[in-house]
Amino acid sequence: MKYNKKWFWLFVLPVLVAFTIIVIIPLLTGIYYSFTAWNGRVDQVPQFIGLKNYLLVLKDDGFKSAFIFTTKFTLVSIVIVNVVGFSLALLVTRKLKMSNFMRTIFFMPNLIGGLILGFIWQFIFVGVFQTIGEAFNITFLQGWLSNEKTGFWGLVIILTWQMAGYLMVIYIAALQNIPKELIEASEIDGANAWERVRHIIIPMVAPAFTISIFLTLANSFKLFDQNLALTNGGPGNATEMLALNIYKTAFTFSKYGEAQAKSIVFFIVVAGITLVQVYFSKKKEVEM
């Protein structure tokens, strides 16, 4: 069956127009603007200046430190969020009486937007941690978000609280797809709990790991709302991540050409690591 061209365009065009105006045109013009002395407007044709913006980006210490901070944050988040998410999935699939209740609770933070989440946790770190720290004389809980280290772990805690429940849902689906016979057979053969996890469960949920690592990677590398609401990059710019750095370059310092060059670097890195990660995970799944 094939519909004629008129019908094809009638159905496809509305979305395609929106997609083209909102995504494709800004992306292409954005690539061009990154090579110009752009002033952030579309009124006049900006002057072409070659790689000058990119050279400025290379020399920008703020961008460099944001890059390092973001990379560290992403690596730590991938491990912690996935370990927590997978553990929650194991916990709620053990047929406890409160499994459904726990599932609901663990997923709930995911519904709350990053900005509001960041504000809630700002109070917890600054207000509640301080109270507990002073009451029990625990110095470790005092002065949170006032230095890079606590800002970093604050962001990790927020993202874990928010995202682990989401990954849990993905892991639950994967765990439920494991044939019961496989587990029973291993029990008969005398495998202990750890051996079961290592040799049956982990290989069987490998595709879910791929998806989950991909999601955590993308979300933590692109983190913006939580960063803005929790620390706003501070103190100084110690906890400033890439997305926030780009935002401030444009809207605080009005360096549009340079900000656009940073955006393109950001885009290439995000797309690159995503493709590489998916490629290797798919390859590994087959081997396992």
């Binding site: 800004p26 992306l27 579309v42 692109k222 935002y247 950001f266 995503t274």
Partner: peptide, 22 residues
């Protein structure tokens, strides 16, 4: 094209979109 666009972070189109939408 729709699938490939999932790789594009919002920041990559943000500034030109602000200018264009104005």
């Amino acid at each position: 094209m729709f699938i490939a666009a999932m790789l594009v972070p919002f920041q990559a189109v943000m500034l030109p979109l602000v200018a264009l939408s104005g």
